[in-house]
Computed example of a mutant assay.
Amino acid sequence: MQSQGALGWIEQSALAEAMRTGLWTYPIVEIVHIVGFVLLVGSVAMFDLRLLGLGKALSVQALGRHLLRWTLLSLVLVVPAGLLMFSAHPSDFLGNPVFLLKLVLILLAGLNALLFHARVYRGAAEWDVGAEPPAAAKSHALVSLFTWIAVISCGRLLAYT
Rank of each mutant, 00 (worst) to 15 (best):
Q2P: 00
Q2G: 02
S3R: 02
Q4K: 00
Q4S: 03
Q4D: 08
A6F: 06
L7Y: 03
L7H: 00
G8R: 10
W9Y: 01
I10P: 00
I10W: 00
I10G: 05
S13E: 09
S13T: 07
A14N: 05
A14E: 14
E17P: 00
E17T: 14
A18G: 04
A18L: 10
A18M: 13
R20Q: 15
R20D: 14
R20V: 13
T21A: 15
G22H: 07
W24L: 13
W24E: 03
T25C: 13
Y26Q: 15
I28R: 15
I28S: 13
E30W: 08
E30T: 12
I31T: 14
I31N: 13
H33K: 07
I34D: 03
I34T: 12
G36C: 11
V38T: 10
L39G: 15
L39P: 07
V41I: 04
G42M: 04
G42S: 03
V44H: 06
V44D: 01
M46P: 09
D48S: 09
D48P: 07
D48N: 13
D48T: 04
L49E: 03
G53Y: 06
G53W: 02
L54A: 07
G55T: 08
G55F: 01
A57N: 14
L58D: 00
S59L: 05
L63V: 10
L63G: 09
H66S: 10
L67K: 04
R69M: 13
W70Q: 14
T71L: 14
L72P: 04
L72M: 12
L73W: 01
S74R: 11
V76N: 07
L77R: 05
A81R: 11
A81W: 02
L84D: 13
L84S: 10
F86I: 06
F86A: 11
S87R: 07
S87V: 05
S87M: 01
S87N: 09
H89P: 01
H89W: 03
P90F: 04
S91M: 05
S91N: 11
S91F: 01
D92F: 03
L94N: 12
N96K: 01
N96D: 12
P97E: 11
L100G: 10
L100P: 13
K102G: 06
L103T: 03
L103Y: 11
L103A: 15
V104L: 12
L105W: 15
L107R: 12
L107V: 14
L108Q: 06
A109E: 06
A109G: 13
G110T: 08
N112D: 13
N112E: 14
N112G: 03
L114G: 07
L114R: 10
F116I: 00
R119D: 03
V120K: 08
R122C: 03
G123A: 14
A125P: 15
E126M: 10
E126V: 07
W127A: 13
D128F: 09
V129S: 10
G130V: 09
G130Q: 09
E132F: 10
E132W: 11
P134S: 09
P134H: 05
A135M: 05
A136L: 07
H140L: 06
L142H: 01
L142M: 08
L142A: 08
L142F: 01
L145C: 12
T147R: 04
I149Q: 10
A150E: 12
I152E: 15
S153T: 03
C154T: 02
G155I: 01
R156H: 09
R156V: 08
L157I: 01
A159K: 11
A159D: 11
A159V: 05
T161G: 13
